[in-house]
């Protein structure tokens, strides 16, 4: 039963993830908290763990599945997240090239980007509010955000530095 719930939940996110998985992060956080699977803080922590692994950011779904129902949960959540959207992509990819000059393609692209921006901003707000429960943690977040935008430092470096600062008691 719980596997079915997981599969349906992530299949829904797969189809609603316009512009990419990041736009579903705030809805994902809301859903796992509503199901009493995770607290907001645990969700934020799992997000941090998912970001420390190589690979696409849909891995957060794997971790939620793992937390909720072990390895079968991880499998079901992952397949739910990638199944519907990749099926759709394979179906559409055959005809996509034909529309490369089409105006509607540019319209849809221009329409999607700001919505994705607003949703990822909502995800960032949620994660920052959850993760930064003191000024030192807020400082780590701010430094990571600013340096990512202003330098070419590898993102993994910020995660390592953040974890290191936490370990030595800075958090």
């Amino acid at each position: 039963m719980i596997l079915l719930t997981l599969a349906l939940l992530f299949a829904e996110f797969s189809i609603l993830a316009i512009g990419g998985v990041a736009s579903t992060l705030p809805a994902m956080a809301r859903a796992v908290v509503a199901h009493h699977w995770l607290t907001p803080a645990q969700f934020a922590a799992l997000f941090g763990v998912a970001q420390s692994s190589p690979g696409p950011n849909m891995l957060i779904s794997t971790l939620i599945g793992l937390h909720v129902a072990g390895l079968p949960g991880a499998a079901v959540a992952t397949l739910g997240m990638i199944g519907p959207s990749s099926t759709l992509t394979v179906l559409v990819s055959g005809v996509w090239h034909r529309f490369r000059e089409a105006r509607w393609r540019r319209i849809v692209q221009a329409a999607i980007t700001p919505i994705t921006g607003g949703m990822v901003l909502a995800a960032a707000t949620f994660l920052l509010r959850t993760a930064d429960h003191n000024w030192r943690l807020a400082l780590i977040s701010a430094a990571a955000a600013i340096l990512t935008l202003r330098s070419k430092i590898h993102p993994l470096a910020f995660l390592a530095i953040g974890a290191g600062l936490g370990l030595v008691g800075f958090s």
Binding site: A44, A163, G166
Partner: peptide, 12 residues
Amino acid sequence: IEGLTAAASGLI
């Protein structure tokens, strides 16, 4: 993990 999560939130 707290420090890691704070950094990950900054990245997003």
